[in-house]
Design a protein around this nucleic acid. Structure first.
Length: 422
DNA sequence: TCTGGGGTCCTAGGACCC
DNA sequence: TCTGGGGTCCTAGGACCC
């Protein structure tokens, strides 16, 4: 086996981050809420043990929360993001080759570490993250990314592994595949798991032993790659450089239903400002945008109206001013009075790098001026946070903005970022 | 009363072209 | 009488991820 990959992730990420700064939460059941405080998106181990379910609406979990005194907190993304950056930085000191996979997960390439005691190395990483950041992690090491993820999953549950599992012999890999349910394999979701079970494929080991043609036929080429990775054949390398996004979306549910065009315009302008900022951060332009909104689908007694309007731009741009004006045109084209809107969003599409720009002879906009203004806005935004400078169309009241009833301080960033403190 | 947000990739089918 | 077929592009929808 040539390649060797390490997967590390933060245990109960959001709950663990809060506990660093609020140690009184240690040992207590804790649930972290989605944007708008709608549902539960993260739980401490104690909350999991009480039967609080991932994705469960808050009101449904309320009986358990009240009965056992589960502590509830709103999401705090500035804080999560900051701690995530520190986690990945720490991880990166252990290999020259690193992939930042998500806010709480990363991969390292250990292919040249054949002389290293891998178990010990994994334990050192785990201890270091704990010492430097106070975050609990688990580590899996194996020949492919899929197997490293699987090793990590077992490490989390096994008392013997103590949070670090190395799978680098055929016997160990076979034993591991046998104890993992097919639905717990990375890339096998609910639909595929149900389908596979009907064919008698129950474990990860079963999946590793289907034929290539079966995998391709039933799970597409993506599934075939998973099967090969389970057999130890690497099909996915680490992504060292994050690829530029092909689509950029900003959408939110409203804290209160929105019924007027005025407020909807504020929200759309605000979301577009955010998307345009993301677009410029990755040094791209876009040639298409969409605006969409919906009423509350969980409320069948209210009249429902969802719509989406897409506009192709005559000249690709990343100017907030231009994108907002097109977005408002799109919105006006589809907005209807008489509905209680629950959510809106914008989507940027047909994204291309700044270098591939092509002009249009009918272009009447002074792009140089826009560019200077955007640069100035971006400097302020990155130094002082979003919202320090904004367009008039974004509004100032933002009565529609999302609910955060259980807010916390941004402990590591700015004290003035305090949302609501209880 | 109250149900997240932001992405990726693949496939099938239709339009269109020569 | 016999009414092609292959390629490409685009889009919608479905699956997955955290």
């Amino acid at each position: 086996m040539t390649g060797l990959k390490l997967h590390a992730d933060i245990n109960n990420c959001y709950a663990s981050i809060f506990r660093i700064f609020m140690p009184e939460l240690n040992g207590e059941p804790l649930a972290v809420l989605s944007n708008n405080d709608g549902s539960i998106i993260a739980r401490s181990q104690e909350a999991k043990d009480l039967g609080i379910i991932m994705g469960q609406p808050l009101f449904e979990a309320k009986p358990i929360i009240d009965r056992y005194g589960v502590k509830v907190l709103s999401s705090n993304y500035p804080l999560f993001h900051d701690m995530s950056t520190r986690f990945h930085h720490t991880l990166g000191t252990f290999s020259p080759s690193q992939e930042i996979y998500s806010i709480d997960e990363g991969f390292l390439d250990l292919s040249n570490f054949y002389k290293t005691d891998l178990k010990e190395y994994g334990c050192t990483i785990k201890k270091t993250v704990w010492k430097w950041l106070g975050l609990p992690i688990c580590v899996g090491i194996a020949p492919t990314k899929t197997l490293a993820k699987l090793a990590n999953r077992i490490a989390k549950k096994s008392t013997k592994a103590k949070g670090v599992l190395v799978l680098n012999t055929e016997a160990h890999i076979k034993a591991a595949l046998n104890i993992v349910d097919v639905g717990d394999v990375w890339g096998i979701g609910r639909q595929y798991a149900t389908k596979l079970r009907k064919f008698g494929v129950l474990s990860a080991w079963d999946l590793a032993n289907v034929t290539d043609s079966f995998a391709k036929k039933e799970l597409t080429i993506v599934g075939l790659r998973i099967v090969k990775e389970l057999r130890g054949e690497a099909c996915a390398d680490l992504e060292i450089e994050p690829p530029a996004k092909k689509g950029i979306c900003t959408s939110r549910s409203f804290g209160h239903p929105v019924t007027t065009l005025d407020l909807m315009q504020e929200a759309v302008a605000t979301y577009m400002t955010r998307s345009a900022y993301k677009l410029r951060r990755q040094k791209s332009f876009c040639a298409q945008l969409s605006v969409f909104f919906e009423t509350n689908p969980f409320n069948p007694n209210e009249p429902q109206y969802n719509n989406c309007k897409t506009i192709k731009l005559p000249v690709p741009t990343n100017s907030t001013l231009e994108l907002v004006s097109y977005a408002l045109l799109a919105l006006k084209a589809i907005f209807r009075n008489g509905y209680k809107y629950k959510k809106a969003g914008v989507y940027l599409d047909d994204i291309r790098p700044a270098t591939a720009m092509q002009g249009n002879i009918f272009d009447s906009i002074d792009r140089g001026k826009h560019l200077d203004l955007m640069r100035a806005m971006d400097v302020l935004t990155s130094k002082m946070g979003s919202g320090v400078v904004k367009l008039a169309s974004e509004g100032t009241e933002k009565s529609w903005k999302m609910k955060q009833d259980y807010g916390t301080k941004c402990f590591t960033t700015r004290m003035e970022d305090i949302l609501v403190v209880r």
